[in-house]
Design a protein around this nucleic acid. Structure first.
Lengths: 242, 242
DNA sequence: CAGTGGTCTAGACCACGAG
DNA sequence: TCGTGGTCTAGACCACTGG
């Protein structure tokens, strides 16, 4: 049997896009069991190897987890992998073998002002949730988190228990992101930041800004401020990480 | 014909490793023409599809370039891709549409001291080349570069024309890296750095440390210092960039 | 032990682009 | 034009692992 390429892209690209959409949109929530390779092959009317190619890519991307004999499942959205792990503050602290705690400082729902609108790329009429919180390691300030959440995309965040734990973890569990962007700066601590982080004024700080989108639109804008010099972002690379 | 897995890894992993070694070691220098898929398939005694899988991975990794009808060639080592581009300072400056210039400040060959040895992971007896240079945008200091080059791995660097242009570009053209590591810090500018970068003392700066290895061993350790707040590192991600 | 994913094959068609 | 890479297939074997 031969193939004539009806659409513009290849078969496995089409299938990849379709499965990716189902996962990222939440139609297949985390933990959902995917059809077996043979069944997918039948339903898409392709050979099993084409399906396997797609599944391999999804696995590499971390969207699915595969276990022999039991099948393939939508991965719990770690939401971040590799480099992106730099903003899972709790994991960072625990990796240092320090006790972690979290302190919510403020949580306000309001209309987006012009500044928010620019950061989140939303219209000014949107409701947003603004959070300010402190990540603590061994009882001492480790990182300041300032976050905007787009309630237009994630309305249920309005009633989430953000006093109990980091908003990042909550979001990542229910809003699969489809794109993210990091910006990393060095800043001089303002008096405000210095007080919160319990450091001297005008000390250098590492500022990580992260914006996240789902297919439904902008999700969150967050700014992590780390006391400088004590903290580093590390990333390792190999040319062919095959 | 069937296969019995003799070694521990898979066929395409074995072939991938072999080709990668040939390329990275310089046995197949940039521009070298690889055998056709069918020939590789014959010489490795595998099917063409297995070879194709490997070639696809090498292409994604940027190690080779493929052109229909003409064949497959070892890629000119851009040496850095994606995130790693953050240390191609010249490209950064030009991307800002500013005229770029480069000023070599010092270049010294000496034995590695204890400090160098720790940074480069070399024994204390190794000869190293220490370079200090300034990247300028529109005639103003843009970034300070402090670099150690392991002459044990790259002896020809001792006579390279580093007064003419950045050492990074020179290295990347002849020493394919097989691994790299970045660390990113925020630091407070010392008086020395402030003077060189023509900024006020105690301003926050973004410090990017990069270590690079080839299969022959450690190649270079480099520290880029950017005036803070003016500079940002940006990285964008999609979960399945397949 | 049986079913699943992981891998590989031999062959095929097609689009592209250098000659 | 026609050789090359890009893609796909139908079928096969195997290792692993959960029932």
């Amino acid at each position: 049997m031969t193939k004539s390429n009806t659409s513009r892209s290849t078969l496995h690209q089409t299938i990849l896009a379709d499965l990716e959409r189902k996962i990222v949109s939440g139609e297949w929530p985390p933990g959902h069991k995917l059809p077996f390779e043979v069944e997918l092959a039948r339903s898409y009317e392709v050979s099993r190897m084409t399906v396997n190619k797609v599944m391999t890519q999804l696995t590499k991307a971390g969207l699915i987890e595969r276990r022999k004999r039991s099948g393939t499942f939508v991965a719990k959205p770690r939401g971040q992998s590799a480099i992106l792990e730099i903003t899972d503050v709790e994991a960072e602290v625990r990796a240092l073998n320090l006790p972690y705690s979290y302190k919510l400082m403020s949580s306000v729902i309001r209309k987006a002002n012009r500044h928010d609108a620019a950061l989140l790329e939303v219209p000014g009429t949107t409701d947003i949730l603004e959070i300010r919180a402190l990540h603590m390691a061994h009882g001492e300030p480790f990182c300041l988190e300032e976050r905007l959440i787009n309630l237009g995309t994630v309305p249920e965040a309005a009633h989430a228990p953000f006093a109990d734990g980091p908003a990042g973890a909550w979001l990542v569990q229910r809003v699969p992101w489809s794109a993210a962007e990091h910006k990393i700066f060095a800043i001089t601590a303002t008096a405000d930041i210095a007080r919160l982080l319990e450091i001297a004024a005008r000390v250098a700080c590492l500022l990580i800004q992260r914006r996240t989108w789902s297919t439904a639109g902008p999700v969150t804008f967050v700014r992590f401020t780390y006391p400088g010099e004590k903290h580093a972002i590390v990333a390792s690379f190999t040319p062919a990480a095959g």
